[in-house]
Structures are given as C-alpha cells and as structure tokens.
C-alpha cells in the first residue's frame, strides 16, 4: 500500500466504508508511515472538533406544525372557513339581524367581505367609486403597497410612536399591538382607503413576509368573529370589533395568518 493510495482512501477507511481487508492494509501502512499517521491524527482531530463545536440545528417547533397544516390544507380545496368552530348566531345577533333589514343597504359594503349572507343582488348598492368587492380591493391595496416606498409612511416598531401619528388624520383609534413575542415584527403604518373610506394599514412582518392589517370604521357597529379566506392566493383574515373592521392580508400561509389574527384578538 503506497502513501498516495493510503491518503486517497484514508477518509473512506475512517468513515467505515472500506472492506475489512483493504482496511487492514491501510492500518498496517499507517502503523509504519509517519506522514500517513499524521494525516490520520488530523482527521481524528477534525472530527472531534466538529462533533464538539458544529451544531446540528434542530427544526424550530413551529416548523413541524406549519408543515403539517400546509399539507392538510393542500389536500382540501381552499375555501373560506370560520376561524372558530361554527356557531349559530347568538340571540342578540339573531334579533339584530331581524331588525336590521332597514339598514342592510348600509351593511352591504362590509357584507361583500362574506361575513354577512346578504343576497348578492344587494351588492350593487355600493355607492363608492370603487365598486369592486372589498376583498378584491384589499388584495389590490396589499399588492400595491409592496412596491416601495408606499408600504410604510411611519416606520416604527413602537406602537407608542405609531398611534400618535394617526392623530388628526383619522377619526378613529386603530389597535396597534406589539406582537414580537409571537414572531410578528411591527414595521410601521400608512394611510389607506377602503371603499372610499379613510382607513389605515398597520404593517407587520413574519420571516420575510409583510402582513398588511387594514383597519377602518364599521358602519354596522356589530362585532363579528374572524373568518379566514384565500383570495387570489393571498391569505386573508377579517373580523369586526369595537366599531372597527379589520382585515389582515398577506402571502404567508393560512396557518401563520391565523396565528396573527388570534394574537391580535387575544385579550391583553
């Protein structure tokens, strides 16, 4: 066994990939050759170094559930589904619905988001110049916002900077929450319009995916549970609370958006 041959096969030998007889030949040569013995020592040293200092990174716990969710979602057609287990309307919701026929027209703007089962024929009542359904508008605004520099007008990760920035610009107080503990980084905010109404967009980010949270006054003034949908491939979660409409739009998968919506709605 020559030195060149030994050195060529040294790694395969140390990795246990050689047949025993070749291994014995190499072992014999290494026992007699200082250069080859030095190579063996360097290899053993390197292995010890790597085992001691090179980490084997473990998958983050959220990754496994994200993968499973995505695979399950991939098996089912993407349809709008309620975030919480579906319940019938509560008694006061039912009462309100029965009494609300006179203001259905006013509700239609929000109804096109799919939360209300308003007959489709009434959707023509949209008085705004923008007659597209609200969902379509929101996706269009989301896409447009991604082209810099319009995404953020007030860049800040501090809700106490963003909230005062709204003062004097709008006649409502949007919720701006720090969700960094849940993995959503607050990037800032900008002014928006939804169906001709003044609105704001609060911008978050998870990994490299921006999330636009649109907030605008709710005409109906009724709270409604969050609903997730997929619109032209974008994930959207929409709900109403405290006289405001909320709609989160992003290209993250539905699972991450659901987490985002839940985090925003969680009691403080």
């Amino acid at each position: 066994m020559s030195c060149i041959r030994t050195q060529q096969m040294m790694d395969a030998w140390l990795d246990g990939e050689l047949d025993p007889s070749t291994g014995e030949e190499i072992s014999h040569h290494v026992g007699q050759c200082a250069d080859c013995a030095a190579l063996k020592a360097r290899r053993e040293q390197l292995r010890a170094t790597l085992q001691a200092a090179a980490p084997r990174y473990a998958a983050p716990p959220a990754l496994r559930s994200a993968v499973l969710n995505q695979l399950q979602a991939a098996q089912q057609p993407p349809v709008a589904r309620p975030l919480t287990t579906s319940r019938g309307p509560s008694w006061w919701q039912a009462t309100a619905m029965a009494a609300a026929t006179s203001i259905v027209t006013a509700l239609v703007t929000w109804g096109t988001l799919g939360k209300l089962s308003a007959p489709s024929g009434e959707q023509v009542a949209l008085a705004d110049q923008d007659r597209r359904p609200v969902r379509e508008q929101l996706v269009a605004r989301h896409v447009a916002s991604l082209s810099a520099p319009s995404l953020i007008e007030v860049p800040s990760s501090d809700s106490h900077v963003i909230k005062p920035w709204f003062q004097g610009k709008i006649d409502f107080a949007p919720v701006v929450r720090d969700l960094s503990a849940q993995g959503f980084t607050l990037l800032g905010a900008r002014m928006e319009r939804v169906s001709g109404q003044r609105a704001v967009a609060v911008v978050y980010k998870i990994r490299e995916h921006p999330i636009n949270l649109f907030v605008w006054p709710d005409i109906s003034g009724r709270d409604s549970g969050a609903e997730l949908a997929t619109v032209r491939g974008f994930s959207m979660g929409s709900w109403a609370a405290g006289g405001l409409n909320f709609a989160a739009v992003s290209d993250v998968d539905a699972h991450d958006l659901e987490r985002f919506v839940m985090a925003l709605q969680a009691p403080r």
Binding site: Q7, Q8, R42, A48, T49, A52
Partner: peptide, 19 residues
C-alpha cells in the same frame, strides 16, 4: 488529498473550542 498541513493538534484544539 493534500498532506501539506502540519499544524500542532493542541493548537488547533485551543481554537476549536470557539464554536
């Protein structure tokens, strides 16, 4: 396989402690 490196394994071990 180049066998031109002749570093002292002890020296390597010291620096190797820095992950």
């Amino acid at each position: 396989a180049g066998a031109q490196v002749h570093d002292n394994p002890e020296q390597i071990a010291v620096r190797a402690s820095d992950a």
